[in-house]
């Protein structure tokens, strides 16, 4: 039994899911692969009344990962996943084996100066007035 979704990301006025497509991991997912799906939760303009205009102007969207349940799905097509909490969820396939892209960033010159300076201070090389 499938409950009606409040938004599938497809149909209606929107193809908002296209902004979430990440083709790096491939354009086709097969059964059992770790994938990410997209769901539009609320349409732009249907947001809570107390949110600022820039938020009101965009939809509330969601992504979640899980194991693909269909034999084969292409990016942008409806897909079903079994999540790590063992739930079955439906949405639009936006990424296959999505990678974690976060990192430690670039060296920050403003921080690199801190250690040498305070070590000099502590060693008594500078007499510091408060």
């Amino acid at each position: 039994m499938v409950e009606p979704l409040s938004g599938t990301g497809q149909g209606g006025k929107g193809r908002e899911y296209q902004r979430w497509l990440r083709p790096e991991g491939g354009r086709i997912a097969r059964r059992g692969q770790w994938v990410q799906i997209y769901v539009k939760v609320l349409d732009a303009g249907q947001r809570a009344p107390n949110v600022p205009p820039e938020t009101q102007a965009v939809p509330l969207e969601m992504v979640v990962k899980g194991f693909l349940q269909e034999d084969q799905v292409g990016l942008g097509e409806p897909a079903t996943v079994r999540t790590l909490a063992d739930r079955i969820l439906q949405g639009v396939l936006v990424a296959v084996e999505p990678r974690y892209g976060h990192d430690f960033g670039a060296p920050v010159a403003e921080l690199l100066q801190v250690g040498p300076r305070v070590r000099r201070l502590l060693a008594g090389g500078e007499n510091h007035a408060c």
Binding site: V41, N50, T55
Partner: peptide, 17 residues
């Protein structure tokens, strides 16, 4: 740690989800 993570865009309507 084995959790399902629902990742949303900005907004207090996260509470609805």
């Amino acid at each position: 740690y084995g959790a399902e993570v629902l990742q949303l865009t900005v907004g207090p309507e996260l509470f609805y989800t």
